[in-house]
Design a protein around this nucleic acid. Structure first.
Lengths: 190, 190, 190, 190
DNA sequence: GATGAATGAGTCTTCATTCAT
DNA sequence: AATGAATGAAGACTCATTCAT
């Protein structure tokens, strides 16, 4: 009874770990199965196919992460505080589960997997936050979509830099204020 | 300077176009050969193997681009002007040859291809520019590597956003000043 | 005579329907189970394996059909009348349960399933009918096996033609006399 | 130079032999490749996929056979003579290349392979022959499609009977006149 | 009677690469 | 320079079947 979802979770973790390390196209169903310790066929009892496996896992964890970020910024009244809280949460997440963070970062790029008209939750939330802040005159009028892209670029590219250029032990959290200050400076605009 | 080697250039363009559209792992040697109009075997007369093909093309164009950016910022005395010139050049490049820009953007991610200890020219240049500006007290002391990552993130993520979310005809150049202003605000710090 | 075994009957009908539509090799145990609404494993409670499933269903219905044909021709004294009655019954059967008819038609071809020395009941009956008619001088001497094949060919190929080329609603019964006349003309041999 | 089409022909014969013996679904690409003495991958240089392989071979030989039958009946003026010539040619074909005959017989059943609206050449020819004969008053008015089915049934079912019930050495040609007489008796209609 | 999870062998197909010509 | 044929390894996926529950 308890054993039920056990395999599925093992598959999820194995897929996350492997894809984080070698990318979606760099791994095979065989790899995942081997990592879990089951046959390839067993994977198909839990996921329809490879694409679905990646996409299902992606949305599951991505949405959870988006929800966490929403909860994290919610109590704060100002955009600046919200940004700081969210960036800090991102850094903490990166440090706590680097594989998952990397997986989410990579899976985003696989446009092919997303159903038509799919809207990623995170940029959507950011856009809305910025729009509200503009309405409240916290920040000047600006192109919300470009600002969203820039803010995300600041965080993601720094994460990427840590991923590729720094030893695995290096933490991102020490950079949290640097990053959120930068984000704020961009949307505040002069 | 007529490069007699016509087929090789055709292969380069075909690879760039296809990889920009579907990613390195999404295309096969057969796809490239088909696009060029030759046999797969013919590709091996111009490149040792698939990895080399991608990597050779990547470095060829990436280095050329890096050189262009160097030439573009060189005449300008201040960091701010340098940044503005470079960002503008990036946007112009994106608009003029979106396939190549995309290819360069994607190929960067394929760590596996790079020889050990490979240092991408662009971030290196940026780091040096920032270091110099600090020395000259144009900008305050700061973690040069983080600043580099953030500046690149601003430009690249915005490009990515245009790639994935906007129709192919949308240009990036109108955003050039917005982007370079943002970059400047980040390194200027306060 | 209530057969308590409800699931087994559902399996039979599902198998007949699916195999009629896509052939024995075109369907899987999963397909059948899905059609019935049970697990694949459940099928194995009613049939030892896939081959047995098909064969058991085949013989069950084939023998029943052969028995019906026997009952149908029995009251008639002459071969001509017997043929007419049987052909008519065939056409009626085709019209009433096209899936079952098709299934029986197809399953015949799967020689592999039949136990060694298996003799299909229908041709056997026909052969005996012809032999008797010859003995009684109703029809001239002839190669009974060839005649049997020809008579069956007339009916079966016409059925096949209706199956493949005509809309599902087309009935075979209107052709019954045409067919039985043809059969008679063949065995009568002018 | 001469070696060119050699492999393709070997593949054709291997496929014909194996499919005649075990049916299309009973054989794998591996089987065919093994029989030819090449890798599975080599098959894909000559045929797009398994379905195409079977269909291409089928049409190639089926059309050739249909053309031969056309040539065979052409010189004869009367329907009766035409039928006799064609049936004789069928029997001779059966005896000479039983594998190919069987393959053609089986492949016909795989409706899935045929492109939409595909019209088999043989029944079409027969229908036209019958229609002409009716117009010329050689035979009485009748449902041409049903007559075509019955004529084909006579020949094919007899062939099938030989295939399944008789030793491989048994010839069909001795039955040629029996069969063509039967066909004639059916269309002549007393 | 039936399920859910799993297996192992097998399916077709694609891939990068090689080589004789 | 380029082709056509071939390979061997690997890819994703399916299948009939089993078994503990």
């Amino acid at each position: 009874m308890i054993r039920s979802n056990n395999t599925r979770e093992k598959i999820e973790r194995a897929a996350i770990r492997l894809i984080a390390a070698r990318g979606m196209d760099g791994i095979s169903m065989r790899d995942i199965a081997g990592e879990v310790g089951v046959t390839e066929a067993a994977l198909y009892r839990h996921f329809t196919n490879k694409d679905a496996l990646v996409w299902d896992i992606f949305t599951l964890y991505y949405d959870a992460f988006a929800a966490k970020l929403a909860a994290v910024h919610e109590p704060h009244p100002t955009l600046r505080a919200k940004l700081a809280a969210m960036v800090a949460a991102c850094c903490a997440f990166f440090d706590k589960d680097r594989d998952l963070f990397t997986f989410l970062l990579l899976a985003q790029h696989i446009q092919r997997l997303a159903p038509k008209g799919y809207q990623a939750a995170l940029p959507k939330m950011l856009r809305e936050l910025l729009a509200t802040a503009i309405k409240r005159a916290e920040i000047p009028k600006q192109d919300v979509e470009i600002s969203t892209a820039m803010v995300m670029g600041i965080v993601l590219q720094t994460a990427l830099y840590h991923l590729y250029q720094k030893p695995r032990s290096t933490k991102l959290q020490p950079q949290a204020t640097t990053l959120s200050d930068a984000c704020w400076r961009i949307v505040k605009q002069k």
